[in-house]
Design a protein around this nucleic acid. Structure first.
Lengths: 128, 128
DNA sequence: ACGTCATATGCGATTACATGCATATTCATC
DNA sequence: GATGAATATGCATGTAATCGCATATGACGT
């Protein structure tokens, strides 16, 4: 996980949105796809790319693959994801994505389907 | 000049060093080459790439081409160049490059050859 | 064992970037 | 106007990323 890798991950629009989402917490592939309105193969491959560069990590949870920001996060990544909120808010639909995320998680909470994000969040707090 | 362009510029080691140098002030191509110990063609092409993405601008000064960070700088670029000093100091020879820059400019000051950086610096303050 | 959902992978086509050599342009000096 | 320094460009080649389709894997429910 080095400087150049961080920027390589950041230099694509959809990857940027994915990282922005994961900053708010772990997500499985189908949720990422749904929020972004993105293609399965493309999404999976971008996640793989970022995994190979060490920016995200994956963990199987039943039939789902849950992705999260790799820990410890590179300071540059952290800084830039913070920046996206401030500097770039208007340019790209980052906040909209986050709103969609909230709505999606609320719906899951209610219907009790999908990976157990609650447990995962908890787990993610334990490790590190 | 958009978010993705910024990151595209940043995701190469030598471009990163060039931007870090230009942050301290404008420079002509031969000085950039000398400081980085880099190849002429490669350097020229990277500068062109960054110019096309709107990150730097060029201005002829006699037989030299003087490059500077484009104004107004994208906030993300500014932030990241600042970060390079803090987060990434050890990883890459950024500070060494700046030391070399200082020595080079001092030498130019003394021998009075090369483009008139003093005048250029002044001019760069005037515009914006 | 079978079907299905979630996800990943292999492959081939395409596009983007990088690199290096040779050559062109631009200006300054003589 | 010839020469030389500083810089840019064209072209040819190589490598890396992207994309879409088809297919594979892995887990779950029946």
């Amino acid at each position: 996980m080095n400087t150049i890798s961080v920027y390589k991950c950041l230099c694509d629009y959809q990857r940027l949105r994915i990282l922005n989402l994961l900053r708010a917490g772990p997500l499985c592939v189908c949720h990422i796809m749904e929020i972004l309105g993105a293609d399965q193969v493309k999404t999976s491959k971008q996640l793989r790319y970022m995994r190979e560069l060490g920016m995200v990590s994956a963990q199987r949870e039943a039939q789902w693959m849950v992705y999260r920001l790799a820990e410890p996060a590179h300071p540059l990544l952290t800084e830039n994801l913070k920046c996206l909120q401030d500097c770039v808010r208007e340019e790209i639909g980052f906040s909209e994505d986050l709103v969609k995320r909230d709505r999606l998680l609320a719906r899951l909470e209610a219907t009790d389907c999908g990976p157990s994000i609650g447990a995962i969040e908890h787990h993610s707090h334990l490790q590190q």
